[in-house]
């Protein structure tokens, strides 16, 4: 069977998904939450570990942010993905799209890329703007680590996006799709935590390299 993919159709679908979802109020709200969160954590983050209340550099900010991002982004990804297919199937718009000369592959890939761009925009808007602010105050040392953190966060959330779109294609109801998404979210969290637990218990360090620690968390969850 030949792969039935038409790049132009994929692009059209991706563009539509982006335009339709980027104006979604939730996505905008969450970008703002990220923005504020980074600034607040950068400022107060040190206090929780007994340090001073002042703007910290990227390294310390990332250390605190990684756990939060690991919780929040999957939620956004699942929110975007869960209704991508079943939602449109329920309201009839998928029928119109599938009535056009497009293949199922075009639609799924287009949706994945389009919603992925929404995630990318959310992460780079929320983390990017606040990153520039933190950098301007506390200095741009380790900004590469911060960038790496953003990229890893993006890849991490793409994993959840893929899964929730998959759930959306196999679900027969919107509610089943979100239930599936949540199961994946929590099992991902639990598996990740257990793996980190094992890693720490078997002599892995947490404080030595926080950027790397986050990457390890990503990989273990994925």
């Amino acid at each position: 069977m030949k792969p039935d993919i038409n790049i132009r159709k994929v692009k059209a679908i991706a563009k539509k998904e982006f335009m339709d979802n980027v104006r979604n109020r939730w996505v905008l709200a969450l970008s703002m939450i990220f923005l504020l969160l980074v600034i607040v954590i950068s400022y107060f983050g040190g206090a929780s570990s007994g340090g001073d209340v002042e703007f910290q550099g990227f390294k310390a900010t990332v250390a605190t942010m990684s756990t939060l991002a690991a919780m929040l982004l999957p939620i956004i990804a699942i929110m975007l993905g869960y209704s991508a297919v079943i939602g449109e199937s329920e309201n009839g718009s998928l029928g119109v799209v599938m009535g056009c000369p497009v293949s199922r592959n075009d639609v799924i890939i287009g949706k994945f890329l389009g919603l992925g761009s929404v995630l990318l925009a959310t992460i780079f808007l929320g983390f990017g703007i606040s990153g520039v602010i933190v950098g301007a105050i506390a200095g741009f040392e380790d900004s590469l680590a911060y960038l790496l953190f953003m990229v890893l966060t993006f890849l991490f959330s793409m994993f959840f996006l893929g899964f929730s779109i998959f759930m959306s294609t196999i679900a027969t109801k919107r509610s089943t799709a979100i239930a599936g998404g949540l199961v994946i979210f929590f099992s991902g969290m639990i598996a990740g935590t257990i793996l980190i637990g094992i890693w720490v218990a078997t002599g892995g360090g947490h404080g030595s390299d926080d950027g790397g620690g986050h990457a390890g968390h990503d990989a273990s969850t994925a």
Binding site: K9, K15, M19, D20, G92
Partner: peptide, 25 residues
């Protein structure tokens, strides 16, 4: 093709919706 009681994309304008389908067709 037009299905029964179809809905489209809430955040797209009439013209953007038409452009989208023009690209698909």
């Amino acid at each position: 093709y037009l299905p029964e009681r179809a809905q489209f994309y809430r955040n797209l304008t009439a013209h953007q919706t038409m452009e989208f389908f023009a690209e698909l067709k």
